[in-house]
Nucleic acid binder design. Structure first.
Lengths: 258, 258
DNA sequence: GGCGACACAATTGTCAACAATTTTATCGTG
DNA sequence: CACGATAAAATTGTTGACAATTGTGTCGCC
């Protein structure tokens, strides 16, 4: 029933710095956290679409959780930037205004550039080995069309790489923006071409890390993010028309996650 | 009984972008939000000290709010980075490890530098007028030793200035780091010398904004943050001794906020 | 006297019912 | 037939009680 939480990384129960006890408990929060993950998945894979209203009772019975838990989950998802809430009016999947998307991506570019500039080069062999292993797994899951694990491994690849920047707070910020933009990138996930391209760029990053080619590494880390942005823009039809939308673009439909 | 919410700025109920209805509701959330603000104040002014345990029942009756609300407040404060929670073990005021503090301040410097670089120069007269008015009020409240309002106005000054950087997401990030570091800066607030220095530096920033002196503006925005960091470090006695602390430094005691 | 098992108290996590609010549908009136 | 007021339904917000977990003190045993 409980199952293991979907996200592979460490739970984000507060800022898990070493305090007095370093026991990494993986219980207790599981109920809420798994629910949060489930809803997150629904958003990532476009089953819940931007601006769609999230009704507490509905999700409550859909996931077999109490309404109270759903409520808490909304609260977390709101802080993650995945849903928007207004008092007495409930929660909706967050929708990004065009200008907003551009601004966020500008910041992603800046932060990732900064992080890439701080990774010691040539990179630690352990780091390289780990990244290679992750990207190999990524490659395999792309072949297997297992989108859920593709998504996880992609996340892990970047998180592992940027964690090497020697500033935990910076890598934390990047992770935050990453999560926040899940609702944007959902328009790109599932496109085989983009997935293949991402895989190739990952290998290129590894080359740059090995060769100690800073310029190339930074360029790759920045340019790596644009395709998903482009996908979002095209999915939204025109663009530039900041006020009105033409024809309610929708995220790709994807096969059930397993 | 309800009173007006402490924070002067707009409530942060989700990401308040214009959606369909633009009615800025200032009700409904007031209960939770005022509670969050109250607890935040307690942390800022050192009545609740780092690592101190926050017991739900206790705060519940202290603030006359239901335990459920306290719980929600903890949830928000956790995401704000002011408290840390662990499952079944409750919440404590966040405590920063020395390396962590340095990392965060490095990022504050970077983000503020980036923002300062993006503010159009010479600055909009309206912006200058607003900042001058804020800093004048700041000056007055410093004289009056009204720390609570000093804190608010200081926040408002920076937020207003950085909001002019033409990237809402960037100014949002800065605001986030600002909030997160309240628990660090609490060691500096209340020091008259530092307050006076901050006031002067604000005027200098205004000069740079008026004169269109980018280099100076960026320098000021970055250097402005170090004094509080230094105060924190000295308050913690030694330093560098990352593992152990000597003698549990404590935030300044301050007079009751009114 | 030290050490482990047990029981009790303190605290957090969960649930279901109730109250308040918003949205939708209905009805009378000009 | 359009329009505004009113009532009903749907949904969210709040409260209090109950269950589960953790921390602490006590007792018996070696």
């Amino acid at each position: 029933m409980k199952g293991l939480a979907a996200a592979p990384g460490p739970k984000n129960w507060g800022h898990g710095k070493k305090l007095e006890t370093d026991l990494v408990q993986r219980d207790g929060d599981s109920q809420l956290q798994t629910l949060v993950d489930k809803i997150k998945q629904e958003i990532i894979f476009g089953r819940l679409r931007p601006r769609e209203r999230l009704i507490e009772d509905e999700l409550s019975q859909r996931f077999g959780a109490s309404r109270h838990l759903v409520r808490s989950a909304f609260s977390e998802l709101q802080q993650m930037g995945l849903v928007t809430r207004r008092p007495n009016k409930g929660a909706i999947v967050r929708d990004f205004a065009p200008e907003e998307v551009d601004e966020i991506y500008e910041m992603r570019a800046m932060l990732q550039s900064e992080a890439a500039s701080r990774i010691p080069l040539p990179a630690d062999p352990n780091l390289i080995a780990e990244l290679e292993s992750i990207n190999a797994a990524y490659e395999a899951e792309v072949e297997a069309h297992n989108l859920k694990r593709v998504c996880e491994l992609n996340n892990r690849f970047h998180h592992t790489m940027f964690s090497a920047c020697n500033n935990h707070y910076l890598s934390g910020l990047i992770q935050r923006v990453w999560t926040e933009t899940l609702g944007i990138r959902c328009y790109a996930i599932g496109d085989p071409q983009l997935l293949a391209r991402a895989r190739d760029e990952h290998w290129q990053m590894l080359e740059a890390l090995k060769a100690g080619n800073r310029t190339e590494l930074v360029r790759l880390c920045v340019d790596h993010i644009w395709p998903a942005l482009e996908a979002y823009k095209t999915a939204h039809g025109g663009w530039q028309t900041s006020g009105e939308r033409k024809g309610e673009a929708r995220p790709l439909k994807v096969a059930a996650s397993r």
